[in-house]
């Protein structure tokens, strides 16, 4: 059984009298531990797809089964719980809370999950160490470089040990070499078994994925699988 199963997904936005089909007749299934790049021109529906997968948005039609469960019919609180425990988000613009330190930003999902402070501190300290941020723990985002910010964001996305990581152009705001570092970090997580779904415009990054979903006008144009690149 596939971890993610989308069938006949429609997502329509109404702008005045005109309707935009951001996603149209989209069906795709993704297995646990896959490394998927979502690619396509601007406005083709990549972010919309990712938001749907992350339960931040609901489809107008179609079903979405996550780990065998139909999640489109869940209540908002149940969806929040799924987001909290099964999904990690990484954004192009990092989305760190400016007044909180790196450690506090990483601790946010643990705090929302109601995990006691002692355990929280231990897990945050470990995560910061894993991502090479231990010396930056008490710095606020504006005191960090872009690469460091994205590493904090990735540490935050993985702190709850999610099953799926959704990254929307995670290297879009980073220079080339920092971007590569971030890509490697995400790939290491995937190697450890986490499903990784990355939206990217970068053909090099896309080429590294073992599976590419090519989108256009809200449809899935190509679903390309390649054998894993030889290391």
């Amino acid at each position: 059984m596939a971890q993610i199963e989308l069938t006949g997904i429609e997502r329509v936005f109404t702008l005045g009298d005109s309707e935009v089909h951001a996603l149209h007749e989209l069906s795709v299934s993704i297995d646990s531990g896959e490394y998927v790049a979502v690619m396509g021109p601007s406005g083709s529906g990549k972010s919309t797809l990712l938001n749907l997968l992350g339960l931040l948005d609901r489809p107008n039609a179609g079903t979405y089964r996550l780990e065998g469960r139909d999640v489109t019919t869940l209540s908002p609180d149940e969806q929040a719980e799924v987001r909290r425990t099964r999904i990690g988000f990484v954004f192009q613009s990092f989305h760190l809370v400016p007044r909180l330190t790196a450690a506090e930003n990483v601790a946010l999902p643990l705090m929302l999950a109601g995990i006691p402070p002692a355990e929280r501190h231990a897990r945050v300290a470990q995560a910061l160490k894993d991502f090479g941020l231990e010396t930056r723990a008490h710095h606020r985002p504006d005191e960090l470089s872009g690469g460091q910010r994205q590493r904090v964001a990735i540490a935050r996305a993985t702190i709850m040990r999610p099953a799926v990581i959704l990254a929307d152009e995670p290297t879009g705001n980073l220079d080339r070499s920092t971007g590569q570092d971030v890509t490697h970090l995400l790939e290491d997580l995937n190697a450890a078994g986490v499903t990784l779904i990355v939206v990217t415009h970068d053909p090099v990054m896309g080429g590294r994925a073992r599976r590419r979903l090519m989108m256009e006008d809200g449809r899935l144009l190509h679903d390309v699988r390649e054998p894993a690149p030889v290391p």
Binding site: L56, P76, D77, A80, R83, T85, F89, V97, P109, L112
Partner: peptide
């Protein structure tokens, strides 16, 4: 607003 969106993405409920 962005912070609220983020908290929701991280799994905050409306009640939180």
């Amino acid at each position: 607003t962005a912070e609220i969106g983020l908290l929701k993405a991280l799994g905050a409920t409306g009640r939180n």
